[in-house]
Simulated assay, not measured.
Amino acid sequence: MAVRAAGSKHSHDDALDTSAEFRRIAALPDGPEKEALRQEVVRAWMPMAERLAGQFRNRGEAPEDLEQVAMLGLVKAVRRYDPERGSAFASYAVPTIVGEIKRHFRDHMWGLHVPRRVQELRNRVRTAVRELTNSADDRSPSVGVIAHHTGMSEEDVLLGMEALESFRTLSLDAELPGADDGYSLADTLGAAEPAYERVIQRESLKPRLRALPDREREILYLRFFCDETQSRIADRFGISQMHVSRLISRTCERLGEQVGAKAA
């Protein structure tokens, strides 16, 4: 069916002349015949899609997965291409396929949501480092060298370099380098400190405790700060233990309502 386009204006060695097939696709109504012809065109352009996928190798994604994403972009390009616009199919298909691959990296390969601008800075820095490093023995180029090479500001270079190390998240169960006995990142994290909440509660209670009647304030002090029993407190004030119990309950309930109302 398709042959390589003679005198093609684009630089793709695997560019094919499928203009006749696309004209037939445009003329056919929706149905099995039209779909079969589309699939035939897709198969003819698969080598180009595979080549474009290969340009994104060594970026943390399996080559087979990249080729599948490229094929998806090719299918979309075949379905959306309009020969009446006058441009060659390759001119439309290449940015469509490359865009599909880039979206795959943006949407599926990052462990955290990263703004598109930061992702683009990362890609520019990564490309510049590869271009400026001629051999494995070369030292990594400095921030200033990368900025001069790319025309980026040093701040953007630093941001892109930080993103180079943020492509994937690190599990909290990951063992720390050089750690013994399986010491993991989770072991370095702190826990919630309940004392902070107690400080807030105490500071909220202070003015309300000072506003209590002397007897109620002293009863609470003896019970909760001196650890006195209710019977000993009752003997001290010459009242029943039941009366002490009711005073403590009512006072604590009232204080709780006052503090809760302020917090709300």
Rank of each mutant, 00 (worst) to 15 (best):
H149F: 13
L220H: 07
E61T: 15
E175M: 09
A15R: 10
P47R: 01
V244N: 04
G260T: 06
F22Y: 05
A15T: 10
R23N: 13
I239C: 11
R210I: 05
S171F: 00
S140F: 10
G182F: 08
S11Y: 09
L16M: 15
W110F: 14
Q201C: 06
P29N: 06
R217V: 01
G7P: 02
A136Y: 07
D82I: 03
A6L: 13
V199S: 07
T251D: 03
F105I: 07
P213L: 07
T169W: 03
P194R: 00
G7Y: 04
K206C: 04
F167P: 00
A264R: 15
P47D: 03
G256R: 11
R124L: 15
R122Y: 01
M48V: 11
F167H: 10
V259W: 02
Q55Y: 12
G238I: 03
I146K: 02
A36Y: 02
M161Y: 03
P115L: 00
M242D: 13
P63A: 06
E257N: 14
V114W: 08
I248C: 07
D180M: 10
L28T: 01
D180Y: 09
D227G: 03
E154Q: 14
A186T: 01
R57F: 05
E165A: 11
L205V: 05
N123C: 05
M109V: 11
E203D: 14
A263V: 09
R139D: 14
A77Q: 01
H10E: 14
S249V: 07
H148P: 00
L189F: 12
V129T: 13
Y196C: 04
I233H: 03
R130D: 12
R122E: 15
Y196W: 10
A27W: 04
T169K: 09
S245Y: 04
A88W: 11
E154P: 03
V42P: 03
C252L: 12
R106W: 10
R51T: 11
K76F: 07
E131I: 05
E257V: 05
L158S: 05
R130A: 09
L222M: 13
S11P: 01
A179K: 07
S204M: 14
R79P: 00
D138T: 04
T229G: 10
D180I: 08
V3S: 12
G86A: 02
T169R: 10
M71D: 07
R210Q: 15
E218D: 15
L172F: 09
C226L: 15
V199I: 13
L185D: 01
G86W: 03
H104L: 06
P95A: 02
L205T: 09
A264I: 06
E218A: 14
E100V: 09
R126E: 15
